[in-house]
Design a protein around this nucleic acid. Structure first.
Lengths: 194, 194
DNA sequence: ACACAAGTAGACAGGTTGGTCTATGTGTTG
DNA sequence: CAACACATAGACCAACCTGTCTACTTGTGT
């Protein structure tokens, strides 16, 4: 039964994600993932050839989860300015743990993972980079709508991306739970600027 | 000879910092710090009662190093706008590895460390938070000079802090080496805004 | 010359790691 | 019922972890 096969695999990934996100990847051993999920070691190693592979699958899973969630948020409002506002308000929801899917808030999983895996030839690091680029691309689409000139759109995109990343970091490291709101206040100035 | 005593201690901290910053804290064992520094295990445990204590000392050391460096950069120019510009250009120097003292660039040590130690009752996490607040305070002093109204100064301060943190993250995770320059371009809009 | 402080080298203990492997159970299918 | 794929439990291995401890070396001050 293929659904059952996927279930075990998914259970492992979800358990691993939850533990990795909460405490960091190196701090969590395979045995703890197994004990928490109630799955046998042999089963894990039938789906993943190593811990590294489980990590890669976990990062991939989180990336899809996050992008799908963000996209669904944008889909609820008009493209352009309203979507950008929604991105910041969604960020606020995430930071203040109003999104069950992403709770509890422990900063950005990809920033955190990049801290532990930052060698340029490491593909986990590459996955983190790709994820951030995808989020950035999503934002760029909205910038293009309110800035017809491509150069201006890209410039706005970068500025807004800086604010988004900054908000996540301030919220996590400094405990600034209003970071996303302040980021949006700042963003409005940039959008209004000539 | 007290200077010699300090030397061994400092050597350990500097070696640990270099390894921790490059590869993450959990990924580096005590034995590797010892082998790299050429110092005996017994000596380490005469200065620090545990790895945790060495980590704490390492975070403290990096915090002082970074703050002193940043302060010395600001001291070279006029207070106010020029100092803020200098902060962003120093950030650019750091990211692009023109500051030997801080090389090689591997993102922010405190963001990275927060990813591995994020429990609220963990004092290492507290150290990271304190460091960020100190950097922010340094920036606030400059904001106060160009914004006489306290509320406006704080608002500008937060906005600039978001850009600074965002630049560090974009540079590290996305490999955007121009992040600091773009952050400054954005900052100028905010400083000029009414 | 001798005591002493501070260093080195590294064995060792007890625990954890990632990963392999054997033995056993279970549920579906022919 | 028999065969099969898939699961579990957990022993086991070699490597590594933090931290302790013994034994030896060095340099300095009196």
């Amino acid at each position: 039964m293929p659904t059952l096969i996927l279930d075990k695999r998914t259970q492992l990934i979800e358990t691993a994600l939850s533990l990795f996100y909460e405490r960091g990847i190196h701090a969590v051993g395979i045995n703890e993932v197994l004990k928490t999920s109630g799955i046998a070691k042999k089963t894990l190693y039938s789906y993943f050839s190593s811990k590294e592979e489980l990590i890669a699958a976990t990062v991939e899973y989180r990336s899809r989860l996050f992008l799908n969630w963000l996209q669904s948020q944008i889909a609820e409002v008009d493209p352009g300015r309203a979507s950008i506002e929604r991105i910041f308000s969604s960020l606020d929801d995430w930071i203040n743990e109003r999104v069950e899917l992403l709770s509890p808030f422990k900063g950005c999983f990809f920033i955190n993972t990049s801290a532990e895996y930052n060698r340029h030839d490491c593909n986990i690091y590459g996955q983190c980079r790709t994820h951030k680029q995808q989020v950035c691309e999503l934002l760029l689409q909205q910038c293009r709508i309110i800035q017809s000139e491509e150069k201006a759109a890209q410039s706005l995109n970068t500025s807004l991306s800086l604010l988004v990343e900054g908000a996540i970091v301030r919220a996590h490291v400094m405990g600034d739970k209003q970071a996303a709101q302040q980021a949006w206040t700042t963003a409005q100035v940039l959008i209004a600027a000539p």
